[in-house]
Design a protein around this nucleic acid. Sequence first.
DNA 1: ATGTGTCTACCGACCGGTCGGTAGTACGAT
DNA 2: ATCGTACTACCGACCGGTCGGTAGACACAT
Lengths: 206, 206
Amino acid sequence: MALPVGSGSSTKELILAVALRRFGDHGFAGTSLNDIADEVGIRRPSLLHHFPSKEALYRAVLFDSFADWTGLVEQAIEGPRQGWPQVERMLRAAFTFFEDHPEFVRLVRWEALEGGPILRDELSVLLKPLFDRGADFLEREMDAGRLRRYDARQLLLTGYGAVLSYLSDGQLMTGLLDTDPLSPEALAIRREHVIDVLRTAVALDH
Amino acid sequence: MALPVGSGSSTKELILAVALRRFGDHGFAGTSLNDIADEVGIRRPSLLHHFPSKEALYRAVLFDSFADWTGLVEQAIEGPRQGWPQVERMLRAAFTFFEDHPEFVRLVRWEALEGGPILRDELSVLLKPLFDRGADFLEREMDAGRLRRYDARQLLLTGYGAVLSYLSDGQLMTGLLDTDPLSPEALAIRREHVIDVLRTAVALDH
DNA sequence: ATGTGTCTACCGACCGGTCGGTAGTACGAT
DNA sequence: ATCGTACTACCGACCGGTCGGTAGACACAT
């Protein structure tokens, strides 16, 4: 075949890509299968041939996205462990991922708001080890006197919450800030600001 | 005329109270007029007698909530202006309001996610003066050498984003933390943590 | 006091439209 | 011939909103 097998252009993968964006933009309830099917270029029953139901499609989108996310964080966790530089490396990797995948951030926000049982009961199980590992690392660094002492879990939530908010509330910020809050430049400024604040807050020698 | 005007239990006010909670729980699209009407104890047409449309009801809910919010912030802004204590006073007032009105926080989150034109085009106009005033105050304090220098607007977004996230993503956090993240105790811990981090980050003498 | 008109608050019934999902069919490639 | 993929046609449920109508409170002229 002339078509590259791993091209990612199969109908199923196209559906997943379109669904990710639509679910991210309008949430589960706000996205209709017709919307997705139309954009893919097929009819709704054809879409339901690839995924048995709307919820099955949604779950596939959610789990795929989380696999990408946890994979990247796992990778960033590797390497020599060392005080603030290690923290900053993890933060920067996570933030960059968020910036590259804003539809993922919005998807998580929708899920959190709807109180979706999928994320709460299943995905949080996948997320918890990462969360605990991050908290354990921070606690060890604090014990070793390399970081100012805080509640490690609270500190993790603070950092991620700050950037997640910015990315999911971007359209709202447009009215408050003068520049486009979702432009690459604005996102970089945002990322560096949060890192700067956190660095200052956890530093012991300034 | 014969109706007890200030009774607070009129049907219209009851509708607004129920609608605030339903819209906060399930968003605009996820809330049906039947849901609201049933809980109020009337039929949908009767509800539409008090508000001409679903959107009109939603706007009323949104504007009422924002009036409460801006009123409280305006009030907290008053008083002698003085470095960090003044900042903390504003933060504490805002956070306490959020804790007392979690449905308001969730309403704003929904609106931000849906990219609602109401909040973006109209409410942000009401919000911007407060936002600018807060940023101006922070900048003056930084100029006077009473606070560490940051981008004032970014700093404002960071603080509010941290608490807003926590309150709107509470159900998600249940799987990550061991305790109920929305209990009064957990919220107080959260509030004090954010204030603590911000205080440390902006302090110049530690 | 009695009828008359007007107002508010509410109701059941119904409308056009959209939703997710199903059944049966057509068609090209293997 | 079979299988995978797509289609048209259809279903019941639900949506926001409109319609005509009813019950009761009130003001007022007689």
